[in-house]
Amino acid sequence: MHCSIRHLQLHEKARIVSISASGELGRRIRDMGLVTGTEIEIVGRAPLKDPVAVRLRGFTLTLRNNEADHITVEKLEPPA
């Protein structure tokens, strides 16, 4: 099932299917290792539900929900 990172639940895992951001945002996202095929896990959300903390390639990064909207993922497994 495809959705944006914003709609993933806490601790849910997914694989990146496509990234629609270009320009500076696109570059930042790529430089931090978010490219097609990368597996990610939602590890936290800020107290006000935004930004979101994502684990990938052994480290954690944060992005705002409106930035996460550019990243489409497919869910890997249902949350335990």
Binding site: M32, L63, E67
Partner: peptide, 12 residues
Amino acid sequence: GESTPFVMELPP
């Protein structure tokens, strides 16, 4: 101007 992307590492 657009806000600078927040994409940021949460270091250990």
